[in-house]
């Protein structure tokens, strides 16, 4: 059976999925990137190979996320696409008439507006990570609550406390002050969810035409408190897809499938044994001019296979 592999290497998590020719998810893996994109991709592939049925042959590979270029060098990708496009492709595949995609990940939050399956507008948080997964993680840890229970606790609240949501520093100090005043945890967490949603809609959602069906995805979509706060603010039902946490990877796999099927090409996938090869990234600052470019190079078993980050052609590899 034919399978298509999608890899989404984000700032916080790295996700791998394999889909079949119909675009159904056969297997998915969700790992923490922990700042080591190459290692985690190799580890993910190893796990994936073990769990995947033997008769599945990988016919195409797509990468996305902030580590997409790096990963494509390591695994041999057929498509390398930004995560905004990948997410939109995945959501319109799963909810074909979707018109709004809310997406909150580890460090990014974005909104994508689609009409008839086509992206017509999008926005991404630009300068602040308030209201993203990392911040929720941090707060859950500070309060000693497992992140999985965070959303459920918010749902128990009967009397939300108002929390400042514009900046994560403001939000945290506001939460602490309200705690010190004696508000209970459920109400504070519900207030935080509401504040993050308010901030999201005011920041990335500003000026966007938010119409139903609304899909909510990304790691934070697992948080029922946030989902509920969105439903309340937008006065509409919020759809959280089953594989909401790996939508980028699904999109990447779908893009690879389309390319391979349309072009009738062979995949560039280097095979499962890439997990055995030693890839070592390193970087240096070029002092050739005032730009002081941070050049990154990847060595495969000691030999340089890719280099980027430089602005002139000084460090181009001879083809």
């Amino acid at each position: 059976m034919n399978g298509y592999l999608g890899i989404d290497v984000g700032s916080v998590s790295t996700n791998l999925v394999v889909i079949n020719s119909e675009g159904e998810v056969l297997e998915k893996i969700y790992l923490r990137t922990k700042g080591q994109p190459i290692d985690v991709v190799q580890r993910g592939l190893k796990e994936l190979k073990q769990s995947l049925a033997d008769d599945i042959e990988i016919k195409g590979v797509g990468t996305t996320g902030s580590g997409r270029n790096l990963t494509s060098v390591v695994v041999g990708a057929d498509t390398v696409k930004n995560e905004i496009t990948a997410h939109a492709v995945a959501s319109s595949h799963i909810v074909p008439d979707v018109r709004t995609v809310l997406e909150i990940g580890g460090q990014d939050s974005k909104i994508t507006i689609l009409r008839n399956g086509i992206v017509v507008d999008f926005a991404m948080n630009t300068v602040c990570a308030a209201g993203t997964g990392s911040f929720l993680d941090q707060q859950a840890a500070r309060l000693g609550i497992p992140i999985e229970d965070f959303g459920k606790m918010a749902l128990k609240s009967k009397n939300k406390v108002r929390i400042a949501g514009r900046c994560s520093v403001f939000a945290e100090s506001d939460m602490i002050h309200k705690q010190q005043m004696g508000h209970n945890l459920e109400d504070i967490i519900a207030g935080l969810c509401e504040a993050l949603v308010r901030n999201y809609l005011n920041n990335v959602g500003q000026g966007k035409d938010i119409l139903a069906p609304v899909v909510f995805q990304g790691g934070v979509a697992a948080n029922e408190g946030i989902k509920e706060a969105f439903a309340e603010a937008l006065e509409t039902e919020i759809v959280v897809p089953e594989h909401h946490d790996v939508m980028g990877a699904i999109g990447a796999a779908l893009l690879a499938k389309d390319k391979i099927v349309n072009d009738g090409e062979e995949t560039s996938f280097k095979g499962w044994n890439v997990t055995e090869i030693e890839y070592t990234p390193s970087s240096f600052e070029c002092e050739g001019c005032a730009n002081l470019c941070e050049v990154i190079e990847i060595r495969m078993d000691g030999e340089i296979v890719s280099r980027w980050g430089h602005r002139c052609n000084k460090w181009d590899l001879a083809q």
Binding site: N82, I84, T85, V119, V120, F122, M124
Partner: peptide, 14 residues
């Protein structure tokens, strides 16, 4: 770069 790529995708489709 990510935002530019996505924007270029969007206007190309359009």
């Amino acid at each position: 770069t990510t935002r530019l790529e996505a924007f270029v995708d969007l206007i190309a489709k359009k």
